[in-house]
Structure formats: C-alpha cells, structure tokens
Design a protein around this nucleic acid. Structure first.
Ligand SMILES: [Mn+2]
Ligand SMILES: [Mn+2]
Ligand SMILES: [Zn+2]
Ligand SMILES: [Zn+2]
Lengths: 143, 143
DNA sequence: CTTGCAAATGCAATAGTATTGCGTTTATAA
DNA sequence: TTATAAACGCAATACTATTGCATTTGCAAG
C-alpha cells in the first residue's frame, strides 16, 4: 500500500483519538486487497505477520468502524462480515444463495430512499445509514 | 386469533409438508400480537403455555420461515429478529440507534431497486429477496 | 377408529460468534 | 526522555444457534 493511503487512514484513526498500531495497519492493508466482505475468522486466517489475537482483531475492527474506514455487512451467513469503505461512497451487494458469489452494487439511490422512508415516518426526522443487500441466483447457478 | 387465520397459516404449513403443532400455533399467535421484530429469547420469555425448548423454538421459527409465514430481520442487535410476514406485502424498518425505537416502512420501491441492481450487474440475472433497514434518530432522541 | 410412520419435540452436548477483565506493552504527546 | 492513556494478549465467559438421539405426536391410509 502506498505511503499516502497509509497516512490517510492513520489520520482518520488519530482524528478519532485512536492509535495507529502495526495490527491496525496490517488489517487495513489486508482489507484493501480483499474483493469481498470477510468474517473476523477469515481475516485472522489471512494474517501474515505471525498471528493476531481474536480479541485484538475484533477490537481493531471496531476501531476501524468507528473511524469510518470499515463497514459491517450482513450477508445472512450467520456472522458479521467486514469490508473497506471507499470514503464518500457507499455500496451494497448481490448475493447468490446457491454458490455464495458476491457482486458489488454501487448505484444505490440512498438519498431518495431515505427521503421516502422519512416521508412515510411519524417518529423519525433523520436517518444516517441504511443496510441493503440483494439475494438471488447468479448466471452460473441459474443454468 | 380467529379460526380463519389459524386455518390459513395451518394450510401454509401443510402445503410445505410441515405439520401443524400446538407449539407452532402458539408461536404464530404470539407473533401476531407483536408490534416489533423479536429475538428467539424474547419470544421464549413471552411463552404462555408452560415453556418451549430453545431448540424447538428455533426449529419452529425455521419452519415458519420456510412456509413464508415469518421473516428474519437484522437490526444490528447481534442476533436475528423474527416477525410475522403479511402475505403479498413486504416492509422494512427505521431503527433509532439511541433508544431502539422501531418503526415500519411499507413503501419500499423493491421492484425498481431490483431492476436497478440487475441492470448494473454482470453476474446476476434474477433476484428473489432483499434486506433494507434504516438507522437514525427518532424525534424523542433528537431533542 | 385404529394403526404406521415420518415429522416434531425435548434434553444434553457442542459449535460458532463475540465480549469482558486484567496484567503487560506500546503509541503519542508533553 | 518520560508519563500516561490506549491497545495488546491471554484466559475466562457470555451469547447465539445447531447437532444427535431417544421419545412423542400429527396425520393419512386402511
Ligand atoms: Mn463490497
Ligand atoms: Mn416490522
Ligand atoms: Zn451462484
Ligand atoms: Zn430514539
């Protein structure tokens, strides 16, 4: 990972009063190379520099989520998956319920949906986030 | 619960080759009265006829999901919540991250979103379901 | 109404996911 | 260089959900 990106993420951490540690840097570096969201255990299995304690990994993931670097995703796998968040963007996923194939969906009309949701709501005045995942069958599995 | 509704759900179970048991009927009856999605443990705590074994409850919930009577919801509570599904409809939720207030959102433009998602996809040709939940702050907590 | 049997139940054990407490180590700012 | 709050690693524990198996039961066939 180029130095500029590393420094960008380091700043995002420090901005939240969080420390920049070797573990957190390797975690970011690892997530940068992933093409799909991954569970804590899968991440742990991919760890290069020796090993990382499971607790430390979960706490590092929490820290990155707090800093807005990582987002949690629920793909109905029975656990939380994590992926790097591109700043200023957001995206969702298409999941094949047969083979597990995952594809990103980037054209989410989030603002419109939130407007719609707020208009129909009697109790809410502002929305900060939303989860959205699609489940279906990919070309390969459709036969 | 009126007899007609009970019979309707019983038929939905039998149609899937699933049996109609006292536990499943009480579970449906209990879910009918709920205004919010609930976890397995919360449902167990509300059980009236004596007690239900946790395993039986999970298996009954699975059965109702298979029969299309119940849907699973992830409200980022660290567990699965369950709620009765109105046949032919679907809805999502607004969740207050401060106090936990939950409000239904019924005006989901699901068909359009799926069309949008499929158009942008290179690997998928059909989508069956989607998850969508909004997270924000309710009027009471906004101050 | 009886009977046969696959499906469902209850209990015990276990798996999988995530968190807490605490003593030691380390990043960072003074 | 030093002080200190944050982070780390390890052990224990909590919480969520599932598996295996002996027993019971829904329900359809006769
Ligand atoms: Mn993604
Ligand atoms: Mn609801
Ligand atoms: Zn597939
Ligand atoms: Zn609130």
């Amino acid at each position: 990972m180029p130095r500029s990106n590393t420094e960008k993420y380091a700043d995002m951490l420090r901005k939240q009063g969080l420390k920049v540690t070797p573990q957190r840097l390797e975690l970011i570096s690892l997530l940068t190379r992933l093409k799909e969201p991954m569970s804590a255990h899968e991440i742990k299995a991919k760890w290069k520099q020796g090993d990382i304690d499971t607790v430390t990994l979960y706490r590092a993931l929490d820290a990155l989520v707090d800093a807005g670097i990582v987002q949690r995703v629920d793909l109905q796998h029975g656990h939380t998956d994590y992926e790097l968040l591109v700043p200023g963007e957001h995206h969702h996923h298409l999941v094949c319920t047969d083979c597990g194939t995952i594809e990103d969906f980037v054209g989410c009309p989030g603002k419109n949906m939130e407007k719609l949701a707020l208009k129909s709501s009697s109790q809410f005045v502002s929305l900060r986030e939303h989860s959205l995942e699609f489940f279906g069958t990919c070309k390969t599995c459709a036969v």
